[in-house]
């Protein structure tokens, strides 16, 4: 897929809670094709210490409005600068990068997300819905305040939640939800993005039940385009770049100890 480098203009910065925002970014021409699971390398301006671009998933894309959305969790200087962007600010993106979630062979799919890993699942869910598939989401957070933009997910599928403190949905981690505690899972394809321990338990569950499972990794990246070989992960084919061969991988392709 052809990669682009473009300046977008922030048309909205919607704050979801003390650490999450959703940025709506406007392009001045038609958007190129962007696949669910792909990401952008975002240039952070004016950070005293930030230097490299920051990889951020495409949270949503609207071809009619020529807009994309990024969901950003502020965990360091770069993401905090993004979180502080104002309407009218410009943001330079190299995009769309990396592999994408594949199309399912089944109509019953489960999308499991935690933390900022929920970000790419919205666009994936939207694309599935356009194909006539109603996805089930399973979204996990520490507490109810950490469950962000749930209403957007409800627009495209059935939403199930877990919180560690039980303040919303099932108490515990995603793996404690009835959807994953069953011996007869009612879905044939699982997509997951979030903290690695979470993805590993999801992958273990899927493998046990012979369900195809795709995971999206968040390795540290310098270039995002396969030029530096910094972002590798161990696979059946040796070390491959997460930014070009991933971020989305079939869980059985990875050399995960699960």
């Amino acid at each position: 897929m052809k990669k682009y480098i473009d300046d977008f203009v922030v048309v909205e910065n919607r704050r979801l809670n003390h650490e999450y925002v959703i940025l709506t970014l406007q392009l001045d021409r038609e958007l190129p094709e962007i696949l669910p699971g792909q990401f952008a390398e975002v240039k952070v301006e004016n950070g005293p210490d930030t230097f490299l671009r920051r990889p951020i998933s495409i949270h949503d894309a609207d071809y009619d409005k020529m807009q994309i959305k990024l969901m950003v969790q502020e965990i360091g200087e770069g993401t905090r600068i993004m979180g502080g962007l104002q309407k009218g600010d410009s943001l330079n993106l190299v995009y769309p990068l990396g592999s994408s979630f594949s199309e399912p062979d089944t109509d019953d799919v489960l999308l499991v997300g935690g933390g900022c890993g929920v970000a790419p699942l919205l666009y994936l869910g939207r694309r599935l819905k356009q194909k006539g598939i109603t996805p089930k989401f399973l979204l996990g957070a520490g507490n109810r305040n950490g469950l962000v933009a749930i209403e957007e997910y409800e627009k495209v599928g059935e939403v199930n939640v877990t919180t560690e403190d039980g303040s919303a949905g099932t108490k515990g981690y995603v793996i404690h939800h009835p959807l994953m505690k069953t011996d007869k899972p009612a879905y044939g394809h699982v997509y997951t993005c979030g903290p690695e321990p979470m993805m590993k338990v999801v992958a273990r569950f899927a493998q046990k039940h012979n369900i195809k499972c795709e995971v999206s990794l968040e390795n540290k990246m310098a270039c995002g385009i396969g030029a530096c070989l910094c972002c590798v992960t161990d696979t059946q084919d040796g070390r491959v770049c997460t930014c070009t061969d991933g971020p989305v991988f079939d869980s059985t392709y990875l050399k995960w100890q699960i």
């Binding site: 930030t50 390795n219 540290k220 972002c231």
Partner: peptide, 15 residues
């Protein structure tokens, strides 16, 4: 195969 991950970290004005 090169070195294991992690292979990169950002540092002030460099990496």
């Amino acid at each position: 195969e090169g070195n294991p991950y992690p292979r990169m970290t950002e540092t002030p004005k460099g990496m």
